[in-house]
Structure formats: structure tokens, C-alpha cells
Design a protein around this nucleic acid. Structure first.
Lengths: 216, 216
DNA sequence: TAATAAATTTAGACAAGCCTAAATTTATTA
DNA sequence: TAATAAATTTAGGCTTGTCTAAATTTATTA
């Protein structure tokens, strides 16, 4: 099996790959809170193991084998988050750190049974899709609230920023997964938005609108 | 916090301390599948951290601080085993390795909520007592079946050997936790025993009787 | 109790994964 | 396109936890 550090690198490469075909050393260093030179060391190792495509100075991408491992880790992370929120009553802003540890528990049988125990959930508490036991999942096509126009609306289905601070703010504003919203108005000055949700008006900044995702 | 290796040493010292006041370097090396010299290195480290009492050549014991940590790890181990068996339908011989990983998940809040979720169980699937959130638990006074006489009996409440092979054997013989048994006869030749359990006669070897624990 | 055996510790190495500092490659800009 | 800046890699080192081999201490036994 792979070490904890290797798994975290694969996971990070996977996440960064969603925004660009190739991932740079510095991007990884920033995300993993480490130094570029440490990243280079690990990239060589992962490359030798056949888990990434790596050409010095040219960035990296996952091989099929590497992606498979990354997706399993993400499956574990999201299923544990679901468990913590739905079964142990944690709040959605409290579970990330615990899931970061739990995602490295090696047994796949364990995670498959956990999945069954919870009724095969499709989305985690932040709206992110949970890969099935074969690593398959649909990336549903969400839009940032900031990208839609006045008098349009949709249902909140995800967040771009997963930080506790942002999640706590949304919780307080009752802008949580599943809530329907409508854009009432967009303030020209700072492009902040007035939303209507469950009959209440809520004003959110451009920053918040950028990080709140809806299906339209 | 402590490293994974440190936690495993503390846990091992705790378990070995149940049979003798002082634990030797070689005992630890055997249990931890490592070399005596590696054990010595770690004992110095744990001693400096104030978690063990260590005098070179004289063996070790846990300090109050060390025991506290060890008991929390055992609490985690047993609660996760209970979860795996009661909620995820694993068999009692399948859960040890998974629990060995899960016991190192750091959050105490998580384990306390898991405890609550399961209704504060008192014993794990092998009959071992689960320490409460303060580390308290009763060591119930069990006897090996081999230590009792013909026409005496009791209820199966634990095992001394936790190996899958032994547990699978007991499962097949239906000699599981909670079953009442009575000693019908003891064969003088090899001191094997004829048990009566739920109307059925079962013959077990001395070896098995030594590792099967009952409350009388 | 002296000699031997067993247990334990010390010394010196090694791999993983990280670091800093220096060198190299690629990108940018005058 | 030459010079500079940014990104990346290389070189050499550190810590943790392990190892083997040698030295030391404790236990056993003749």
C-alpha cells in the first residue's frame, strides 16, 4: 500500500487537476503546506511508482493508477464526513479534520460497508459527490451564485470554499444545501447580491456569491 | 500529541503490565514485532516525556500520564470494534486489524459521540470491558474454563486468545459470548473437557479451555 | 563464585519525508 | 534577444523509527 504522505500528494494532485490539465510543483507545495523541494522529491517517488506522469519542470498529472487511488481516498473522505454529520451529529464545519485522518484507514471492505450502512449517499454534507465503490460519480454542473443574473435562481448544491468560517457564516444565514434561492437584485457598486430564500431577504457579498454553488 | 509508534508502545506496555508489575525490553520487542535495540531507543524517548518509569536493565512501567493515554487508546480500539460488529456486521474475528488503525484517530470528541451513538456499550465483541470517557472500567473477575471442576459452569464472557483462528473455532462450536456452559466431564488422559451448552455436548481441548473465560 | 548465557544497551547506519541554500531551467520584459 | 525574474531541481542535512553488530550488564549454573 501507499504511505500517508503519498496518499495526500495524490489527493492534492487530483484536486488541483480539476482546474488545469497540468499541476505545478509550487501549487502542490502551497496546498500541502510544504516546500517546493520536498514536492520534487515526492514527485520522483510517485513517478517511479507509476502513479503520476512527471517530466522535470513540466508539471504533473495522475496516471490511471494514480487517479484510481485518489478517487478512493476522496470516496473515503466524503463517506466519513457523511457519517460524522448524519450519524454522530457533527456540524458541517466540524468534520473536515477528522475526515482527513479517517480517509487513510486502509480497508476498502470497511468503507463499502459504511456506505451500505448509510444507504449509499450520493453527496457529502458540503454537496460534493461521493464516488461509488468503483470510483464512479457524476460531477454535477453547478454555477456560482455570482455568475447568474437578477430574477434568476436555483437550489444551493455546493460550496467552493470549505473553510469552517465560510460554512459557519452560511449556516447562520440559513444558506445551506438544499435551500432554494432567487436573486432579487445586484448592487452595482460592489456587485453584492440580494437573495430571496424562504421568504427572507439576505444580502451577500460578491466574495460569498463566488463561493456558493447552485444548480439552475 | 503522540506519534503512532509511541501510542503503540504505550498500549503494549499497558497490556503486558496486566501480567507483571514490570515489563521487559524483550517482551515489548516480541509483542511489537521489532528488535530490542529499537525498543530501548523508544523507551528513552517515552521516559523523557514522562510517560513511563524506566531504569536501564530494570524494565518499565507506565506513569499515571502514560496509563491515561494507553487507556484512551484501548477505549478507542474497543468502541471501534463494537461499531464494526454491531453496526457494520463484521464478524468478531475480522475486526482487530481495522481497529488497530482506527484507535489512532485523534479526536476524543469523535469517540465520545460514537460511544453515545451506540448506547454506551460496556463490553466489546470479545467480552473485553470498554473504558468510559474518563478511562474508568471494571475488570470483571473471569476464570478460565480449564480452572473449574466437573459439574460446575458459568457464562462465557471473554477470551484470552484473540486470534482469528481461535475465534473462528469458537464461532463454529457456538461457544460465543453470553452462552451458558456446564462442565460435564473432564478426561483424565489429556484433561480435555466435555461441555454442555444449550443441550448440546461439546468436547474442547485443554488448550481451548485455557483460553475461554467464564463468569461463575 | 567463576564462567557462561541471556538480556539489554550502545554505536553506527539507513529510509522516509521534510528542510535550507545553491544551482539550473523556464518565463518575462526591457 | 539579452538580462532579469520566477519556478523548479539538486545538494546536503535533519528527525523519527527502524536495523545489525558489538559492548555491557544481569542472571544462571557448574
Amino acid at each position: 500500500m501507499n504511505t500517508l504522505a503519498e496518499e495526500n500528494y495524490l489527493k492534492s494532485i487530483y484536486h488541483l487537476s480539476l482546474n488545469s490539465t497540468s499541476v505545478s510543483t509550487n501549487q502542490l507545495a502551497a496546498l500541502l503546506n510544504t516546500k517546493a523541494s520536498s514536492v520534487t522529491d515526492m514527485l520522483k517517488k510517485l513517478s517511479e511508482k507509476g502513479l503520476i506522469n512527471y517530466m522535470p519542470y513540466q508539471g504533473v498529472s495522475l496516471t490511471a493508477a494514480g487517479e484510481k487511488i485518489a478517487v478512493i481516498i476522496i470516496r473515503k473522505h466524503r463517506l466519513w464526513e457523511y457519517f460524522l454529520v448524519e450519524k454522530l451529529d457533527f456540524k458541517w464545519d466540524e468534520v473536515h479534520e477528522m475526515a482527513e485522518e479517517l480517509e487513510h484507514i486502509s480497508s476498502n471492505e470497511l468503507i463499502d460497508r459504511l456506505d451500505k450502512f448509510m444507504g449509499y449517499p450520493k453527496y457529502d454534507p458540503h454537496g460534493d459527490p461521493i464516488p461509488d465503490c468503483n470510483g464512479l460519480f457524476k460531477i454535477h454542473n453547478l454555477k456560482a451564485v455570482s455568475s447568474i443574473s437578477a430574477n434568476e435562481g436555483g437550489v444551493i448544491c455546493g460550496v467552493r470554499d470549505h473553510s469552517p468560517a465560510f460554512l459557519q457564516y452560511l449556516e447562520k444565514q440559513e444558506l445551506t444545501i438544499g435551500k432554494a434561492i432567487l436573486i432579487k437584485d445586484i448592487i452595482e457598486f460592489d456587485r453584492s447580491m440580494i437573495l430571496l430564500s424562504e421568504g427572507k431577504q439576505i444580502q451577500i457579498s460578491r466574495e460569498v456569491a463566488n463561493n456558493l454553488l447552485i444548480s439552475v
